[in-house]
Nucleic acid binder design. Structure first.
Lengths: 140, 140
DNA sequence: AAATAAATGCAACTTGATTGCAAACAATAT
DNA sequence: ATATTGTTTGCAATCAAGTTGCATTTATTT
């Protein structure tokens, strides 16, 4: 993925591309999983945590990234696919590995939808499976 | 539900029934939904929050209650059904109302299970639907 | 180049969760 | 009954993560 592609990703969502924003976006794409603010702070020690926080808030507000509640207590974030509008039909399954503590986006697996009782209406769905990831299953 | 039933619920899980533990258990059953530590603190102003915390930790460790991550950032807890062993087949769907901020246990709706990629194994599943509950849908 | 606006870093604050310790309480042994 | 021991609880302090205020830097516009 070249520089131009990252720039476009930001501009497509109406985000002015600064050096730090590009850096954070690249890092998130490189890590290729749902990361917490702390994950990013550890990865980008030169960037202040308030900047990371505000950048993530901005990204989230512009639907460049989506939030995942993986049950660790802290919300995690992952880059949305190119044309994601974050509707329910777009939402995929997430997997949290209890061993390596990484949260994976299983992009090819849609969130399942169940029939709700009368009167309940859906706005979003959080579906997280916890267990052992492929890597941790074999390295034991 | 009489006093005896609450006592049994505790003893069945190997928890010594003190007055405060009974009070917290009764409150959780009365509220009949997944509650946060803060919810309990507000409900039980006479009980210290550290006591509530330690009681909930104890209940959870003894599988008297289960944790639900409803995406509000703070873990919530609800009383397990009588014979629950907290296995996956026991786990039900939860619903978080964006309006009244209550988290419901939809006990009759099992969590759906999807096929995972090779090598991934499941330990537990967190499935939370967010939207409007029946009450909030009508009172608008 | 000056003026204005936006982005960033630093430090402080907030909130909720957690822990240390002493007092209260319960259970047991003498 | 009383002493002894262990458990439970409340209070206060701590901790960690998220968040905000403000000054500084950087970018944009005039």
């Amino acid at each position: 993925m070249d520089q131009q592609a990252y720039l476009e990703k930001l501009e497509k969502r109406g985000i002015k591309p600064t050096a730090i924003r590009l850096l954070i976006l690249k890092t998130m794409i490189r890590l290729d999983r749902a990361v917490s603010l702390l994950d990013l702070e550890n990865e980008l020690v030169t960037v202040d945590k308030s900047t990371i926080f505000r950048t993530i808030t901005l990204f989230h507000g512009h639907h460049l990234i989506h939030g995942v509640d993986d049950g660790t207590g802290s919300l995690k974030y992952a880059v949305c696919s190119h044309d994601c509008d974050c509707s329910i039909s777009e939402q995929h399954t997430h997997f949290y590995c209890e061993q390596c503590h990484r949260t994976f986006c299983l992009k090819s697996i849609h969130v399942p939808i169940v029939q709700l009782p009368d009167g309940f209406s859906v706005q979003s769905i959080n579906y997280v499976i916890k267990g052992l990831c492929a890597e941790c299953s074999t390295h034991e």
